[in-house]
Design a protein around this nucleic acid. Sequence first.
RNA 1: CGGGGCGUAGCGCAGUCCGGUUAGCGCGCCUGCCUUGGGAGCAGGAGGCCCCCAGUUCAAAUCUGGGCGCCCCGACCA
Length: 494
Amino acid sequence: MLIAIDNKQNRRFRTIMSKGLTTRAEDYSRWYTDVIMAAQLADYSPVKGCMVIRPNGYALWEKMQAALDKMFKDTGHVNAYFPLFIPESFMKKEAEHVEGFAPECAVVTHGGGKKLEEPLFIRPTSETIIWSMYKKWIQSHRDLPILINQWANVVRWEMRTRLFLRTTEFLWQEGHTAHATAEEAEEETIKMMNVYAKFAQDFMAIPVIRGIKTEQEKFAGAVRTYCIEAMMQDKRALQAGTSHNLGQNFAKAFDVTFQDENGDLKLVYATSWGVSTRLIGAIIMTHSDDKGLVLPPKLAPVQVVIIPIWKGDDQKDAVLQKVEEMTIQWNGRFAFKVDDREGYRPGWKYNEWEQRGVPLRIEIGPKDVENNQVMMARRDNGEKTAVPMANLSMTVERTLETIQNDLFKKALAYRDENLIEIDSYDEFKEKINDPGGFFWAHWCGQNACEDRLQEETKATIRCIPIDDSKRVEEGTCMLCGEPSHERVIMAKAY
RNA sequence: CGGGGCGUAGCGCAGUCCGGUUAGCGCGCCUGCCUUGGGAGCAGGAGGCCCCCAGUUCAAAUCUGGGCGCCCCGACCA
């Protein structure tokens, strides 16, 4: 007992308060929280299950938003904003949707000191209110397609929450589109899944598997749900984005029809798609290490931090002068910060910026000024090299690109190492816990086997892959032995 | 909702079993000096409804009863 307490005490003592964080090996989930706290990305709020996104975290989100928003605009979408409150009756119009969301909704019953005639749901997602409006806006095929996105907060009353990964309130974007044909809606659904995959790989440097959700895992109210799945460092899966083909379900529920070229009245086809601040959790768990956060350069709010080093005022002036000259052409090229705070020693600053995930650090002291060079340290692999002052901007730019690419390669290699084919259920039951990972396995397509899988192993079918991870081949269901025509991805998920 | 852990300074904790000085320790914070190439040092200082309520007692952080909250692990979920 005493020993246990001592250990705990020592560990905490040794961690945030003094030097390093809890390591991944020690306690992965505590490490995750420590990284967030040390990088000051977020903090717990007074309200259970909610979090405050601090400036460092919000700056990251803004970078993500900017990149995604551009991708949405480039694919023809426009932004709009729909209200937070949804009439209860709306929520109840689509049967599966109600069933899926009712248990996790927050409901406002009072306003202005009086009981409301009709309770207002706080949106867990906006399909219903949006389709109530689309009904007003759509009459003719000429009104289609509608390609609207909104950046918003939503509330889902989760039983168990974790910073960024699952909080009661979270920020996201939700695209809601309306189309004349099923083909067009399907095309849109896949297109947006691909946008997400591209964003994940090119910006977040996270490799993802694109796939289709099983009937049980799909969105409540969708005909078909596409997703991107990423592997975290603990080898668990994280659903990083979803894109739903809603078919005519919401058009039916809200009676949204249009007249086609022939004057026939037809139901509209719908899609919806979203990614959330959960992606910040994905970035943390994919790239960060025991020293703290590691950010991909393309999304890092501060890409380069410059640490001037000096002894005495003369040196200080000379070094800062050099820094000034050096960075004068950097404005608008990359995001940098000069940390010339007094009273903190260089080593202290190195650690602080490492915890915050800044991709590149440049140290410049009297010796460097003399030699017309700087020291450059990469956050991702710790490499520290002397770099000539000449063409420094170019070197920095290239190094940032290299880091971005290396992060992706490293994550991809890790993912692939831990993505294995498996045929024996007994073997699976062992390996899902140790070493863990993503497993390609045959599945017959029946709910019963899927349920059994989850009950017995806590793993779920993450998706039926449709990209390079697709494995079409004849086989037998790992669980029941019935015929299967392709493999699915099974893993434990967040 | 079940299981576990915990509420004492900004953070991490000791003290609680066995009631009794002015409630401590580390880190952080403030002031000054000195320093600055991987989390320096010295000196001084500020900071506490000991989660809340009730009870027992001459006396409660400590005992009793009740409540609240948080974290972790499970069942549900992006």
